[in-house]
Amino acid sequence: MNFEDIIYEKYEGRAKITINRPQKLNAFTNQTLHEMIEALIDAWTDKSVGAVILTGVGDRAFCTGGDQSIRSKDGYAIEESGEGFQGLSKLPLSNNHSLLLQTIRTIPKPVIAMVNGYAIGGGHVIHVVCDLTVASANAIFGQAGPRVGSFDAGYGSAFLARVVGEKKAREIWYLCEKYTAQDALAMGLVNRVVEQDRLSEEVEKICDSLISKSPTALAALKASFNADTESMWGIHTVAGLALNLYYNTDEAVEGRNAFMEKRPPDFKKFRS
Rank of each mutant, 00 (worst) to 15 (best):
K16A: 05
T103P: 01
A77H: 11
I107H: 03
H127Y: 01
A119M: 04
F62A: 12
T18A: 03
S89R: 08
H124F: 14
K16V: 10
L99C: 00
A15R: 00
I37E: 07
Y118D: 03
A43C: 02
I107M: 07
I112L: 09
Y76K: 01
H124M: 12
I104K: 06
A61V: 03
A113W: 03
I53C: 07
R14P: 04
K10A: 06
R71Y: 13
F85Q: 00
I37Q: 05
I78V: 06
A113F: 02
T18D: 08
A51R: 10
G123N: 09
S81C: 08
V128H: 05
K47N: 15
I70H: 12
I70Y: 14
S48I: 00
S69Q: 08
V128E: 07
A61M: 03
K73Q: 14
G58I: 05
D67Q: 13
N26A: 11
L33N: 02
L33V: 15
H124L: 06
P92Q: 09
S81W: 10
I112W: 03
T106N: 14
S94D: 07
I107Q: 01
N95K: 12
I19V: 15
G123C: 06
D74P: 00
P108Y: 04
V49C: 10
L100P: 08
V49T: 13
I70A: 11
N95A: 11
S94I: 13
N116I: 00
G65T: 07
I17M: 06
K109A: 12
D74C: 04
N116Q: 11
L100S: 07
E38D: 01
F28E: 03
A15Y: 02
L40F: 04
G56E: 09
A43P: 06
K16G: 00
G87T: 06
A113S: 13
F28P: 05
V111H: 11
H34L: 01
I70E: 13
T45I: 03
N95F: 14
S98E: 04
D42A: 13
K24L: 14
F62K: 09
H124G: 07
K109L: 06
T64E: 12
Q102W: 09
L91P: 00
G123F: 05
L99R: 13
L91A: 04
N116M: 09
Q68N: 14
E38V: 00
Q102D: 14
E80T: 04
G58Q: 05
V52Y: 08
L93D: 06
S81I: 07
K73I: 15
G13Q: 08
Q23D: 15
I53R: 09
A51V: 11
I41M: 00
F62W: 08
M114C: 11
T106F: 07
N95P: 00
G87P: 12
D46V: 06
H34I: 02
H124C: 11
V111L: 05
T64P: 11
I107K: 02
H97N: 00
G66P: 14
A113G: 13
I126A: 06
R21C: 12
V125H: 04
M114V: 02
G58D: 12
G75M: 00
G66W: 13
G117A: 13
G58F: 09
P22E: 11
P110F: 10
W44S: 01
I78K: 14
G65C: 03
T29F: 11
V49I: 15
